Computed example of a mutant assay.
Amino acid sequence: MSKKPEQNNESPANQQIDTRIAAVRDLIFGENIQQYDSEFADVYDKIKALQDESRKNLSESVANIENKLADLESLVDHKFQDLNDDLEKKLADLDDEKADRRKLGKALEKIALMLQE
């Protein structure tokens, strides 16, 4: 057989005792309970404020990092283009008939050093 949950079928005497117990509890602990409730409300408000501030800081940090990455990508692209232009210029300066290997080697070394920076 299944047990049916009790519905509010308390007798008036039980309700009166419960009311008295609640009144005594409020008399003894009323100030403390109100103080605790107030302190808990303050703590919850502070936690909420910290959560909001943390979310704001996180979103600002993510945006900042994304901007820095975009700047870095632009800088790398610009450096690469400069190096490519420099290489093309150096290769054009070399005499087609007499390709000087030393000049080419120095140009490639310079490009390698620039890439390492």
Results as ranks from 00 to 15, higher is better:
14 N>V: 09
48 K>P: 05
64 N>G: 13
37 D>H: 06
8 N>I: 03
7 Q>E: 02
62 V>R: 03
96 D>M: 07
56 K>A: 07
17 I>M: 06
1 M>I: 04
10 E>I: 09
105 G>M: 10
32 N>G: 11
23 A>E: 14
1 M>N: 04
48 K>S: 09
112 A>K: 12
87 L>V: 15
85 D>S: 14
64 N>R: 15
32 N>D: 08
65 I>C: 00
4 K>V: 01
111 I>P: 00
99 A>V: 15
76 V>R: 11
18 D>E: 08
108 L>P: 03
43 V>G: 00
116 Q>G: 07
95 D>N: 14
1 M>F: 05
51 Q>E: 11
98 K>D: 13
4 K>E: 01
30 G>A: 10
53 E>G: 00
42 D>Q: 06
105 G>R: 10
117 E>W: 04
42 D>P: 01
41 A>G: 10
46 K>H: 05
110 K>H: 07
7 Q>H: 01
91 L>R: 08
105 G>N: 11
34 Q>H: 09
90 K>C: 09
10 E>Q: 08
80 F>N: 11
37 D>C: 04
107 A>G: 10
89 K>C: 15
50 L>N: 06
115 L>A: 05
41 A>L: 09
37 D>Y: 02
36 Y>T: 06
13 A>S: 04
82 D>Y: 08
70 A>D: 12
47 I>Q: 03
82 D>G: 04
45 D>C: 03
79 K>G: 00
111 I>A: 09
19 T>Q: 13
29 F>T: 06
